[in-house]
């Protein structure tokens, strides 16, 4: 009984294709938690990486699909209409999203398929189940996978995920910005400096990540390029949280579309130097990679 993490899309903001990004890959964010032997499949986020699985019309191997969204921004959502299991009547697809206070999830979902934007003559035939999640949710998926959520610092309600299955445990922490200088972006977060909120948030995030062998963490910017209100983090911040939480492997994730493979390599190198002798493996998220969680 084991779980592994497959990276289908590692890019933030938007998919990008050019010669300098082929190494790490250009698809926007999508993960799969591979669970050999289970009769369901589990995906996190639905960026263009989800479309890389293959064209609509392909036959799916399983009949129950879980797709959990960190949030509904384009780079995490735009692959959804190309998710082939949606078009097979035999399938049940469970879609999980945070409670966005500005629109209800089913209508956000169906707008993607509106004929004026997506004139594809195909019909969603799978049985759909919409679920909304709040921060602090803690439940068993298919009676097998423990799922926990934690609201991150990003526009709207963005959820970090923690998945535990047997002895394996993994965290997905994206999108998230540092809370420096009163930079509180999420719905429901305080306005103006609130040091107590920051302290509680950081303690909470460390506790949330504890026990995770591997965490994929938003490392869109570097300390030099950081734009706080854009809602993204840096390798340094990712490392600090991972060291405090005792995480064994940090996957630097959500690469900026402007960053070349060489830029990303440099980011990883600098983060490794920063970590010094600490016992943590630091890697760049690379499309197609599959990580065992032990």
């Amino acid at each position: 009984m084991s779980m592994s993490l497959r990276l289908w899309g590692v890019r933030g903001s938007r998919p990008v294709h050019k010669g300098s990004t082929l190494g790490c890959g250009g698809h926007s964010t999508a993960f799969e938690l591979q669970l050999p032997g289970e009769d369901f499949a589990l995906f996190v986020d639905a960026g263009s990486g989800l479309a890389a699985r293959g064209p609509i019309g392909g036959k799916s191997l399983r009949s129950i699909y879980y797709v959990l969204l960190t949030h509904t921004h384009w780079d995490h959502l735009l692959g959804l209409p190309f998710f082939s299991p949606l078009y097979e009547a035999k399938n049940e697809v469970h879609l999980f999203s945070s409670t966005t206070c500005r629109g209800d999830f089913p209508s956000l979902f169906w707008a993607l398929f509106s004929p004026s934007y997506f004139p594809l003559p195909v019909e969603v035939k799978a049985k759909l189940h919409f679920h909304t999640l709040v921060s602090g949710a803690d439940f068993l998926l298919a009676n097998k996978v423990r799922v926990q959520t934690y609201q991150l610092n990003h526009q709207g309600v963005t959820l970090g995920y923690r998945f535990a299955y047997g002895a394996d445990c993994v965290g997905i922490v994206t999108d998230h910005a540092p809370l420096d200088h009163g930079n509180y972006l999420g719905d429901g977060m305080p306005v103006g400096a609130a040091p107590q909120f920051v302290a509680a948030f950081e303690v909470g995030l460390v506790a949330f990540m504890q026990g995770c062998h591997t965490v994929a963490f938003d490392a869109h910017f570097t300390e030099e390029t950081l734009k706080l209100d854009w809602g993204h983090s840096t390798p340094d911040r990712a490392l600090q949280f991972c060291l405090q939480a005792g995480v064994k492997r940090l996957i630097l994730f959500h690469h900026a579309p402007e960053d070349s493979d060489a830029d990303i390599e440099q980011k990883v190198e600098r983060c490794r130097q920063q970590a010094g002798k600490a016992e943590i493996e630091i890697v760049a998220a690379r499309e197609g990679d599959v990580w065992m969680l032990r």
Binding site: P15, V16, H17, G19, T21, L22, G25, G26, H27, S48, A51, A52, L78, G79, F82, L120
Partner: peptide
């Protein structure tokens, strides 16, 4: 068309 396809198999004709 339809969706970006960045990959090693689309480097000649493009994937955006």
């Amino acid at each position: 068309g339809w969706i970006s396809t960045p990959s090693l198999q689309t480097t000649v004709y493009g994937g955006n």
